[in-house]
């Protein structure tokens, strides 16, 4: 009975938490929130799912190994860092689109960078927790 309630809530919580984490990521430049927090919240969402439905199902849901998230995130961050070189600017200069984006607001390469951080943190947290709960 307890598990049923837990599972049902989790089904609703998972998308909500994920949405919340992305929300934190996107608004990080203007209000509290950042890739770090976003990543951890997303990780917690998946971990919750794993507790409710078992690791196998969560892995199925994720479709990819969490290890793979880390290099992708790192690559994103580094890519955003070296992007300015092609415009003749120093490394890590933030580039901005001229037009504000609907809903999110002004978008720059800082967001790309933060997304990289988000993915790395998510990957790290999931890798650690998943490996531990699988093997220990």
């Amino acid at each position: 009975m307890k598990l049923l309630i837990f599972r049902t809530t989790t089904i609703f919580l998972l998308p909500l938490l994920l949405l919340f984490s992305i929300f934190l990521l996107l608004r990080g430049h203007y209000l509290p929130g950042s890739g770090f927090v976003g990543g951890i919240i997303a990780a917690i969402a998946f971990i919750l799912h794993a507790f409710a439905f078992g690791l196998k199902n969560t892995r199925k849901l994720l479709r990819m190994h969490p290890l793979a998230l880390m290099p992708v995130g790192l690559a994103l961050a580094v890519f955003s860092a070296i992007l300015p070189i092609f415009q003749g600017l120093p490394v890590l200069t933030v580039l901005w689109l001229d037009e504000p984006f609907p809903v999110v607001g002004l978008i720059g390469s800082a967001l790309l960078f933060d997304s990289g951080v988000y993915l790395v943190v998510l990957g790290v947290a999931l890798t650690i927790i998943f490996t531990i709960s699988e093997t220990v």
Partner: peptide, 15 residues
């Protein structure tokens, strides 16, 4: 984040 990645890989490798 590189350090974090290394830590996670360390955990993965250890286990």
């Amino acid at each position: 984040i590189t350090v974090l990645t290394i830590a996670a890989m360390g955990v993965f490798a250890l286990l």
